[in-house]
């Protein structure tokens, strides 16, 4: 599914040049659950943003489903993104003004799904994350765990091939955290590829493989399964 080769990303400010990714090479196969770990500033988030087609690399190759996407323009990236990738953030990033239902519905609107079909799919996925009873509540009215379940629901409602999770349990207590991890595992078992950035060894153990990064490069890979 993902094959990146010698990927480079450099951030420049007026005085400092920060190498975020330094000729990084890695591969994620269809159906894999990969955890990316490493200290702050090692380039995890940059990697995730590039994988999520939110940012483009300066150099190197990024094959997504055997298509070179490294130099896609904004419109093409957005198109690829909304059909193939779901995001789960540490801080949930739900829209406060929209209800649970509307939040989850949003990606379907942007991919042009018809209203009736949207309703069916949103209800299906809300059922799956067990938040159906809260469908008309606003994010502020939910607990952190519930909010993250909504966020996961939103990430998967479009049936993406890939879910990118950026410290999905970072803002949750261990009980709620485990619930979310189990949800991700379940999704993975149903065939969704997952790449997750995390600081938590506990969470990383849910994955098949841990990639450890330092200074913009992979240092080790542990295969867990």
């Amino acid at each position: 599914m993902i094959k990146i080769t010698e990927l480079e990303k450099v951030y420049r400010t007026e005085e400092v040049e920060t190498i975020a990714l330094n000729k990084l090479t890695m591969e994620v196969k269809d159906g894999e659950f990969v955890a990316v770990m490493g200290p702050s500033g090692c380039g995890k988030s940059t990697l995730l943003n590039i994988l999520g087609l939110l940012d483009d690399p300066d150099n190197g190759s990024f094959m997504f489903n055997n298509i070179e996407v490294a130099h896609f323009n904004e419109r093409k990236r957005a198109d690829l993104r909304k059909h193939n990738i779901g995001f789960v953030f540490q801080s949930f990033n739900l829209i406060d003004e929209l209800t649970v239902f509307e939040n989850v519905e949003l990606p379907l609107i942007y991919t042009g799904v018809k209203a009736a079909e949207r309703k069916k799919r949103v209800e299906e996925v809300l059922d799956k994350v067990q938040i159906m009873h809260r469908r008309n509540h606003y994010p502020q009215q939910l607990s952190g765990g519930q909010q993250q379940r909504v966020a996961v629901a939103r990430a998967v409602v479009n049936h993406p091939k890939l879910i990118l999770a950026d410290e999905p349990t970072g803002n949750l207590d261990s009980h709620n955290g485990n619930e979310v991890m189990e949800l991700l595992t379940e999704l993975n078992e149903q065939g969704t590829t997952i790449v997750m950035v995390t600081h938590s060894e506990h969470d990383a153990r849910y994955s098949h493989r841990i990639i450890r990064m330092l200074d913009g490069q992979t240092v080790t890979e542990n295969v867990l399964v």
């Binding site: 957005a78 909304k82 995001f87 829209i95």
Partner: peptide, 16 residues
């Protein structure tokens, strides 16, 4: 700003 970011990630285009 944040909302715009989220929507963009979810696939909203600039005209949207």
């Amino acid at each position: 700003t944040k909302e715009i970011g989220v929507r963009k990630v979810l696939g909203a285009t600039v005209p949207n």
